[in-house]
Design a protein around this nucleic acid. Structure first.
Lengths: 250, 250
DNA sequence: CGAAACGTTGACTTGTTTCAATAACTGTGG
DNA sequence: CCACAGTTATTGAAACAAGTCAACGTTTCG
């Protein structure tokens, strides 16, 4: 597939594509990124990438595959706090200074670039534009956490589902893994349930309802937007915060 | 009350107390803090301190009074994303680089120190220990957001309430505004409802239940822990993440 | 081919909301 | 200092969204 070291493959890497959506990156920026991007690791489904409570864990950038961050409660139930797709940073905060307070587990087989703390800090001082871009990405992640919080607190199951799948669509488009028509989505209904604070059974019903209402179809690992505008309206999805074209900072 | 400029009052300020719980601050650190801490502003209840969508907003440190960060939905309902108490940073992220994606409103009359972007950055380069402490506080805030997300997704109304009030208690103790017995709490049941994703009516019922079960009493603006251990157990409250004694880093 | 994971559907139960009405506070002006 | 208005707290009854239990169909993969 892609050769980790080459500048050409880098420009096409999900990470570079995503950051480019915010900041126009120079060849120099891309070169520094290639240093970060050298080491690769693979993770199989069912093997935690990051453990709750462990210190000094690595950070990663997802190169391919999907992952989920979650917490397990004493009752045995699980709440997924975030879903990571190619190009997403993983464990950025734990690099900066702290033990992780959640687990991260692959949803599909994952390939990830290992980011060492020292490399990251060096990259930041050498290329402020890159630093800005990474901080922007971190801020976007936080905004998504807050948006999920609003979902769980004040939106119905149907609204949550629509909002979640729209948001995923916008994120995937940013890294070239989807378009306005839809995208490939490896999340099972159980995973969706744990992400949206619902039961798997109810997820199934909600998806059926959305399908029967001609809004979206989620079948056989594909999400298809049957009526994008109606969905945006139903979910009161804020297009501005994820759904833009071209770099914001040139 | 306290004189903003003096080193003595600073050591007793909620902000200094909170940061001291994590990092032992030198007289030099405190001196730099006093520069940050100079300008004060007052806000009345009902007047937003920070508006959604505005850029280049100030950041504040709460000196006295409580505030809440929230989002309003099209339906008119509200989700409170966080509650700020004295010593808490407000709008830290927006200083660093972005427009705010939520509103902040006082819950009680508020006095806040204005933090200018430049002052903050200077302070960071001059006193790395202070920077560490502030970043720790930011990380703690993020952990709390995640914890709230888990609350809304996977915990019952009673567990949420217990967890929320325990967390508030631990935070208040850190700034000297409460002890293991309880604390003064100016939040109305409507505010609690919007924070916990419940209806005000149900908040009332949950509080009654907790009272009748001898776990905690919330009446006339005071929270009293009737059985702290049982509450911690009910809420599966993680004492480690907030509930510690003495600085973690000396 | 068989087993395990995932998806689908129905019947029933439960936690929470909504609506409605009343009581207890809080602060303000007369 | 009291009366009044507005906000906040309390409680009951009915409606509803989502959960649970259970059974069965479908896909995936070793």
């Amino acid at each position: 597939m892609t050769e980790p070291g080459s500048a050409l493959s880098l420009q096409d890497s999900p990470f570079a594509r995503k950051l480019s959506a915010f900041v126009r990156l120079s060849p120099g920026d891309l070169a520094v990124m290639s240093d970060l991007y050298r080491l690769r690791r693979r993770f199989a489904v069912g093997v935690d990438m990051i453990h709750q409570g462990q210190t000094g864990q690595g950070a990663y950038v997802l190169a391919s595959g999907w992952a989920s961050s979650y917490k397990i409660l004493r009752s045995g139930s699980r709440q997924i706090v975030g879903v990571q797709i190619p190009g997403d940073f993983l464990g950025l905060r734990s690099v900066l200074f702290r033990t992780s307070d959640h687990n991260v587990e692959p949803v599909t087989p994952v390939q990830a670039s290992v980011i060492r703390q020292q490399d990251l800090l060096t990259a930041f001082t050498e290329t402020p534009r890159l630093a800005t871009a990474v901080l922007w990405a971190a801020s976007r992640d936080e905004a998504m956490t807050v948006e999920r919080l609003v979902d769980l607190g004040r939106r119905t199951a149907t609204e949550r589902m629509a909002h979640f799948l729209l948001e995923l669509g916008a994120r995937l488009r940013l890294v070239g893994l989807g378009d306005r028509a839809g995208y490939a989505c490896p999340l099972s209904q159980y995973v969706l349930a744990d992400a949206l604070g619902l039961s798997a059974v109810h997820v199934n019903r909600v998806l059926r309802e959305l399908r029967e209402d001609g809004l979206l179809t989620f079948q056989k690992g594909r999400v298809i937007f049957d009526d994008y505008e109606a969905l945006v309206d139903l979910a009161s999805f804020d297009r501005a915060y994820l759904d833009h074209e071209g770099p914001l900072l040139t």
